[in-house]
Amino acid sequence: MLTERQELILKTIINDFTQTHDPVGSKTVMSQLPIKVSSATIRNEMAALEEKGLIEKTHSSSGRIPSTAGYRYYLDNLVEPLQLPENVYQHIMQQLDQPFHQVNEIVQEAAKILSDLTNYTAFAEGPESRNVTITGFRIVPLFNRQIMAILVTSDGNVQNQVYNLPRHISGDEIERAVRLLNDKLVGKSLDEVTPSLLAKSLGKHTSSQQANELIALVEDVLKDAASDQMYVDGQINLLSNSSIGDSSHIRSLYDLVDRNDLLSRLLDTTDDQQLGGRSVRVRLGSELPGDLLKDYSLLTAEYSVGSHGKGMIALLGPTNMPYSQVLGLLEYFRNELAKKLLDYYGRFQ
């Protein structure tokens, strides 16, 4: 552990570096410390912090910059979330106070709000859908033997997909199958609708080949409806927040945020360190998988919508971000998003 004075100096260096992105010298620290300390004492304390690996000296200046270990100590022991300016509160409330028609619209807007407010890359995942039930299943004919399968769930979401209709299945057979499915599926949760239930519902009334085609179609729609919807906004901010100009590096970053399988691993918070019991978790670049994000930090916050499940919001930005402001934003925003979703779900009760 550090002494109180060393903690003050480390905190001052991090706060100044966050603002200027320039190495911080002893004179700058002395002018900003809330206590009176000589420059010689500050130099000695900075040397002690450097020995502990919490700050580093750059080649181009006599000043110091925070190390990864320094940021980690700061995040675990010193950081305090700040209250947001009033105009930020108003912006969030205004953007969330829209006539949303689906949960996914709210979650997608959440990612956009966070990206707009921070100029970082933002992620938002909707609440789990285990308790959501099916309220309707429809087939709409299009053209050239194409149909649209539409699934409506109890939370107001509408899932649809377009399929090419096999020639051996007629429109009348599809309509009859849809009536059968509605009789069997409406009122059941997404988890309850298994392949065996679908086969049992359709097998007695359609040929085996037709049943297999329809079961595959329904399974696809159900899979999409039950899958976690992850929305990403502000991908372009990866360019401004990266210190590496290599185009292949930038392409890899874009690939990372566009692939759901990579995102799931990146946003897995199972082993994250938690900040003093607070709701926002922070991982620095060295704590993230691979070297691709070594200059970034990932902040994740879980939100709860009661019986409707839990969701997640996250920000990916530079390591030298203003953590106090961003932590304050995420802690406030996760609560506002939960309130908005609870209000939305209340319309269907």
Rank of each mutant, 00 (worst) to 15 (best):
E4S: 06
D116N: 12
L262Y: 14
N212V: 00
K184S: 09
M1Y: 09
M148Y: 03
I134M: 09
Q90P: 06
E105M: 02
G306S: 08
K339H: 07
K294F: 13
L96Q: 00
Q161P: 01
L239F: 14
H308N: 09
V232H: 00
L165I: 02
L263C: 06
I250C: 04
Q102R: 10
N87H: 14
I250F: 15
T194P: 08
L151C: 04
N157P: 00
T41L: 13
I14R: 12
S252D: 14
D191Y: 11
V221W: 05
S201R: 04
K204G: 14
E109F: 01
K11D: 11
L198T: 01
R5P: 04
K188P: 02
H205I: 02
V257N: 01
L165K: 01
I236F: 10
S196F: 10
E105A: 05
D343N: 13
L327M: 11
G346D: 14
F348N: 05
Q6M: 10
K11E: 10
H249M: 08
D220C: 03
Y73I: 05
P81S: 06
S38L: 14
T121R: 12
L299M: 15
T68G: 13
G346R: 15
S242G: 04
Y163A: 09
S26C: 13
F333I: 08
G285Q: 13
I169L: 02
Q210L: 02
D16K: 14
V158I: 15
K27V: 11
D220W: 01
V326C: 03
A47C: 05
N237D: 05
F123T: 00
K200F: 11
S129L: 06
Y73P: 01
K339N: 14
K200L: 06
G276K: 14
K27P: 02
Q274V: 05
P127M: 02
V37S: 13
L214K: 00
A301M: 02
T3G: 05
L329D: 13
S201G: 09
P66M: 01
I236Q: 07
G317C: 04
K200H: 04
L253T: 07
G245I: 15
N131T: 14
P289R: 06
T319G: 02
R278S: 12
S324N: 11
G156A: 11
D191G: 06
L293E: 05
L330D: 03
E50V: 03
V280W: 09
